[in-house]
Simulated assay, not measured.
Amino acid sequence: MSAEAATELARTLKALADPARLRVLSLVAGAEGREVCACDLTTPLGLSQPTVSHHLKVLVDAGFLQRDKRGVWAYYSLVPGALDRVTGALPGAR
């Protein structure tokens, strides 16, 4: 792995290195229809709306979630293959 690839992978893994963000991914992946309204994440996470929004932004910026704005609400879903991208970058991880 090149130094540049390692730096990029470290940046990506840093987005996952937070328990709240891992829980967000789990909630989205397990949701009916595989998408969740941001407004429905505050209670299960036990976090304030601004904190949930921050975690969602980090996951969107890292390429794990995609955002679909509908009126005043934002719905989030997993980016297909995003988690495979992480495991594929590590030799022998599959």
Rank of each mutant, 00 (worst) to 15 (best):
C39W: 12
L41I: 12
E32N: 06
E32G: 07
T43H: 13
D40M: 02
V36K: 15
A31E: 08
A31K: 09
A31H: 06
A29E: 13
S53L: 10
L56A: 08
A29V: 00
V28I: 11
H54D: 05
V52N: 11
A38N: 09
P44L: 14
A31T: 03
T43C: 02
Q49H: 14
L45S: 11
G46Y: 14
V36H: 03
D40W: 07
L56Q: 10
A38F: 05
L45N: 08
E35P: 00
C39K: 13
E35N: 08
T51W: 06
L25Y: 02
V24R: 00
L22H: 00
T42V: 14
G30T: 09
H54N: 11
L25K: 01
V24K: 00
H54L: 10
L22I: 04
E32D: 11
L41D: 02
R23T: 06
G30M: 03
L45T: 06
L22Q: 13
A29S: 14
T43P: 00
T42E: 15
G30C: 05
S26F: 01
Q49T: 14
G30F: 06
H55A: 06
V52K: 10
H55L: 02
T43E: 15
C39L: 14
L45H: 10
H54E: 04
C39V: 11
